[in-house]
């Protein structure tokens, strides 16, 4: 099995999000960056399990600048064999997908795995776009993945349920909760990660079709109205007459 896992760098989930330069830039001051949880907990860990059972190698790929290297090392510490970084800011989904597709083409990966979305832009686009550019089968939101021979069986989440899917490899997969369990890197993993290969590749020319012009925060809630627990009818009246939701 040759598996490519896309890894992206996102703000830690406890981050308070704020913006600078007149709300045109995400303010990175004081932000801790982590591997996107869907990439790490599900896609990467499942890829490692498949490698452990079937042999092969797991390579990670990241479109990002040098400041992404610490999260890439984290993925290596968890167990990936080597890593590739395409040296460009991942500003637009199609631009990012083009970088990954161009690297992956002709390298003979059996599986190309993504998390179902990132927790910063929540795009859920890059994996599908890479599948489109590579003209490969695509399974979205997969919560399980088993490989036998040259095909895979997956379960994918759909509205109100799920589908069991068979697909011939190579294929592109986006991973959701359930596919694997988070792994905490151990000391040996962290030490060996330093020596693993992290190849930096120049980006290709590719179109950028979207740009964020400005950011905003949700409107602050007004002060909470506290209700007397002995008077549930008051809450019902408020929900009915004031909030008009029931």
């Amino acid at each position: 099995m040759k598996i490519l896992v896309a890894i992206s760098k996102v703000p830690d989930s406890t981050s308070k999000i704020s913006f600078k330069d007149n709300n045109t830039q995400f303010d990175e001051a004081g932000i801790q960056f982590i591997v996107n949880p869907y990439d790490e907990w599900y896609a990467l860990v499942r890829a490692l399990e498949l490698k452990e059972n079937l042999g092969g190698a797991v390579t990670t790929i990241t479109v990002g600048e040098a400041n992404a290297d610490p999260v890439i090392r984290k993925a290596l510490a968890i167990g990936a064999d080597d890593a590739v970084r395409i040296d460009a800011e991942p500003v637009d989904a199609l631009f990012t997908a083009n970088q990954i597709a161009s690297f992956a083409r002709d390298k003979g990966y059996d599986l190309i795995m993504f998390g179902k979305e990132t927790i910063n832009y929540n795009g859920s686009q890059v994996g599908a776009m890479a599948a489109g550019l590579l003209d490969l089968p695509y399974v979205s939101n997969a919560s399980s993945l088993e490989v036998s021979g040259s095909s895979a069986r997956l379960e994918r989440d759909i509205q109100g349920g799920s589908q069991v899917i068979d697909v011939d490899l190579p294929a592109v997969i986006s991973a959701s909760k359930g596919m694997a369990e988070q792994r905490i890197p151990n000391m040996k993993g962290i030490m060996s990660a330093r020596k693993k290969k992290l190849e930096v590749v120049a980006p290709i020319e590719a179109p950028r079709h979207t740009e964020v012009l400005s950011y905003s925060l949700p409107e602050a809630k007004s002060e909470v109205k506290l209700i007397d627990p002995d008077n549930p009818t008051e809450l019902i009246e408020l929900l009915h007459k004031e909030a008009k939701v029931i």
Binding site: A93, N122, S124, Q125, A128, M129, A131, G132, S140
Partner: peptide, 23 residues
Amino acid sequence: NDFTGKAILGLLGSKLDAGAVNN
């Protein structure tokens, strides 16, 4: 932007060379 929309948004974007905004 439901399950199906998320699954096809990116494929469609790459097929049509289109910029996509979700959510």
